[in-house]
Design a protein around this nucleic acid. Structure first.
Length: 501
DNA sequence: CGACGGGACGC
DNA sequence: CGACGGGACGC
C-alpha cells in the first residue's frame, strides 16, 4: 500500500502543490548572509531530521541570492529543534548569524503578529468533560516544561466545555506534544487568542493560569524529606503479576515524595507483591486512599496497605538506595497530585483521574514494547512465557499479538470497523491497546452515550486480522462484536473527495 | 531589517 | 442488529 511516510515528489507535490505547511510549522524561514550555499544549509541542518527541501531564494532576474532560505522538514519537531539550535549561529563562510524562524504559511505572507510565539507554543485539545487541568498536565508534562494547562469551562456552571489549551515554554516541547500526545485529544496548534494589536508583551502580561494554586497540598516535596523512616511512609502492595516495576512506579507517583518502589523479582514476598516507600506520610496515605481497590489492569484490584514493617522486606542493599528510585527512574518528573479539586472521588469506581493515569500507563507500555524496549531482566512482569510476544493482557479473553505502533492520525483509512460492546463500552485505554495490536490503527472510539463505535485502520490486512481475532471476544469482561463498518452516509466523505482534486 | 521557485505519481 | 465523536479562550 501507499506509504505516506516515505517522502518523495509523489507525496510532496500532493494535489499538484507542495505541502509547505504539512505537518504544520515544519518549514523554516531563515534570513542569512547571501553567500551561504544549499550544501552549507544541508550540512548544518540535516542532523535535526529529514530535510525535504532546501530552497535558497534567488532574485528571479539577476539570479543573486536574496539572503533568504527556506528549509522544509518532514516533522514539526525537527524544524523546532533546528530553530532552537541554529538561530543565531553562523554557518558556511558567513560571519552574519542566521536568523531562524518558523515560516508562515504562504497565504499568511510576511506580516508579523505581536504574539506569534504563542502560535507555536500552545496546543488546542478536545478533552472529555471529566478531564481536569491536573489530569491533562499529568499527560502533557512528559513532553516538556508546561507553561499552563487550561480546560475551558462554562462561565456559569463551571463545567468543562470539552476543550483545553496546553502551553509550553519551548516550541520543541509543544511540537513533541503535538506529535506524540494521546491522539484522542486531537491536539492542534492553537490559534492565538483574539487580541488588539497593541500589546506585544502579552507573554508577560498576566499571572494568568501559570501554576494551579491548589497544586501542592504538601508544600514542596523537597522540603518534606524529614520523615526518613516514619511509620506512615511505608506501603505494602499486591498487584497483578503482569505489572512491572515501571508501571507500578508511575501509579504510585501520583503522590509526591515517592522514594522507593520494590517489586520482588523472585516473588519471595509473593507474586505481584511490592513495597512502596514515600518520604512523607501524607503522600503514603494519599496513595493508599487513591489506589487501594483501583482496578489496573481492569478487573484486577490493587491492594494497598499501610505497613510500618514493609520497609524491612527490602533487600539490604536497597534499604538505603532503592532498587528503583527517583535517581534511577528516568521517566518520572516532578511529583504532582491528580484531582486538584477537593471533590476527589473516593468511590472504587475508576475515578477519572485514575482512568487517565491508567491510560497513560497503557499507552507508555504499548509504546515501549512496540519499540522493542520491553522491560528487561530487572522487571518481574513476565508471567509464564518468555519474550514480549508472550505479553497477554488479562483483560482480553483471547491471546493477542504484541503491541504495535499506531498509524499516523492523518493516514488514509483503509478500512473502518464497527464495534458493538455489551453491556457497555470498555475503558478507552483497553480498547486502544487491544485494537492497536493488529498494527496500523488510526483511531478507535465509542460514540458517546452509545455502546457502539468505530476503529479505523490504515491497512486492510490489520483490520481484517482484528475482526478475525476480536469478534465475539471479551475485553474487561465486555463482549464485543467487531465487523466491517458500513460506509459513511453523510456528506463528509464527499467533501473530502472534493478537496483531493 | 527579511517572505515564496521548480515541478508535475512507474512500468 | 447496535451506526457515524468531542472543537476556540468573559472584557
Amino acid at each position: 500500500m501507499a506509504d505516506r511516510k516515505r517522502f518523495g515528489d509523489r507525496d510532496y507535490f500532493e494535489g499538484g502543490k507542495p505541502r509547505l505547511d504539512d505537518p504544520p510549522n515544519s518549514r523554516l524561514f531563515i534570513v542569512c548572509s547571501k553567500n551561504i550555499t544549499e550544501d552549507d544549509f544541508r550540512t548544518a541542518f540535516e542532523k535535526f531530521g529529514t530535510i525535504e527541501e532546501v530552497w535558497v531564494v534567488k532574485d528571479k532576474t539577476s539570479g543573486e541570492p536574496k539572503g533568504v532560505t527556506y528549509i522544509k522538514f518532514s516533522k514539526t519537531s525537527e524544524a523546532a529543534l533546528a530553530l532552537e539550535e541554529m538561530n543565531g549561529k553562523c554557518i558556511g563562510s558567513a560571519n552574519r548569524p542566521l536568523k531562524v524562524m518558523i515560516a508562515h504559511s504562504r497565504d499568511q505572507g510576511s506580516k508579523r503578529e505581536s504574539n506569534e510565539e504563542e502560535r507555536l507554543l500552545r496546543l488546542f485539545c478536545v478533552v472529555p468533560k471529566t478531564t481536569t487541568d491536573q489530569m491533562l498536565r499529568d499527560h502533557f508534562k512528559q513532553f516538556g516544561d508546561i507553561d499552563y494547562v487550561s480546560v475551558v469551562k462554562d462561565r456559569e456552571t463551571k463545567e468543562s466545555r470539552g476543550f483545553a489549551y496546553v502551553k509550553y515554554h519551548k516550541i520543541s516541547h509543544a511540537a513533541k506534544a503535538f506529535e506524540n500526545c494521546d491522539r484522542t485529544y486531537k491536539a492542534v496548534f492553537a490559534e492565538p487568542r483574539k487580541k488588539n494589536s497593541l500589546d506585544s508583551f502579552d507573554r508577560y502580561s498576566g499571572p494568568s493560569m501559570g501554576q494551579d494554586p491548589m497544586f501542592s497540598p504538601f508544600g514542596s516535596s523537597m522540603e518534606m524529606s524529614g520523615y526518613p523512616n516514619a511509620e506512615g511512609c511505608n506501603l505494602r502492595v499486591i498487584a497483578s503479576p503482569h505489572l512491572n516495576q515501571d508501571q507500578l512506579w508511575k501509579l504510585f507517583d501520583i503522590a509526591p515524595g515517592l522514594d522507593f518502589l520494590y517489586l520482588d523479582p523472585k516473588a519471595k514476598l509473593g507474586k505481584g507483591h511490592a513495597v512502596v516507600v514515600y518520604n512523607n506520610p501524607q503522600a503514603a496515605a494519599y496513595a493508599q486512599e487513591k489506589l487501594h481497590g483501583f482496578e489496573y489492569p481492569p478487573g484486577q484490584r490493587l491492594i494497598v496497605k499501610m505497613d510500618p514493617s514493609a520497609r524491612n522486606d527490602l533487600p539490604l542493599n536497597m534499604q538505603s538506595r532503592g532498587g528503583m528510585n527517583r535517581d534511577t527512574f528516568s521517566g518520572s518528573t516532578s511529583p504532582r497530585l491528580p484531582g486538584s479539586s477537593s471533590a476527589v472521588p473516593t468511590s472504587r469506581s475508576l475515578p477519572p483521574d485514575l482512568a487517565s493515569l491508567a491510560e497513560t500507563i497503557a499507552q507508555a507500555t504499548s509504546l515501549i514494547q512496540a519499540a522493542g524496549l520491553a522491560p528487561d531482566g530487572a522487571g518481574a512482569n513476565v508471567g509464564n512465557v518468555q519474550g514480549r510476544d508472550a505479553y497477554d493482557p488479562s483483560y482480553c479473553s483471547v491471546k493477542l499479538p504484541s503491541p504495535q505502533p499506531l498509524a499516523s492520525m492523518d493516514a488514509e483509512t483503509a478500512e473502518r470497523l464497527f464495534i458493538v460492546c455489551n453491556p457497555g463500552p470498555p475503558p478507552a485505554y483497553a480498547l486502544r491497546d487491544v485494537f492497536g495490536r493488529f498494527g496500523n490503527l488510526i483511531d478507535v472510539y465509542m460514540l458517546s452515550g452509545k455502546n457502539c463505535g468505530y476503529a479505523k485502520y490504515a491497512s486492510k490486512e490489520s483490520a481484517e486480522n482484528a475482526i478475525q481475532t476480536l469478534h465475539g471476544q471479551e475485553v474487561c469482561g465486555i463482549r464485543m462484536k467487531v465487523m466491517a463498518a458500513d460506509p459513511r452516509t453523510d456528506d463528509r466523505r464527499k467533501r473530502l473527495k472534493m478537496e483531493d482534486q
